[in-house]
Amino acid sequence: MEAKKELKVNAIKNGTVIDHIPSQNLFSVINILGLNNIQQQVTFGFNLESKKLGKKAIIKVADIYFKDAELNKISLVAPDAKLNIIRDYEVVEKKVVSIPDEVTAIVKCMNPKCITNHEQMVTSFEVVRKGPAALKCRYCEKITDQDHLEII
């Protein structure tokens, strides 16, 4: 069964496979990791069946290994993401993501009267709760929760 599922997206020789992304957040993950601005081959599957998520997405990035801090940024939109590190077609390491203590530059503050929504500047939040996430803006100190999370 596993092998058959795997065929839905072409296998890569070296790189990173990011699985169990909620389908609706695929493009957020692409943006957060900057995959729209790289030269390496990226393949993705969208609206794949998943028992846990309903519809899931999967991304395979050839020849790139991400730093943990970078991967943890996607935890806000893909908290259940599972990562396989591939070397020579073999899975050499499996990783999960965890929400960092600080979130910088990727989330929009939900307070319309916050300075970050009016000035060209980088947002910054302290993570005050991890599951479901609650982020406290460093500027207006209002909470942006998982239900109102918007990726810049």
Binding site: N111, K113, C114, I115, H118, R138, Y139, K142
Partner: peptide, 10 residues
């Protein structure tokens, strides 16, 4: 004094 929240910190 500024109408936007967090403006002074910024």
């Amino acid at each position: 004094r500024h109408p936007l929240e967090g403006s002074a910190k910024y």
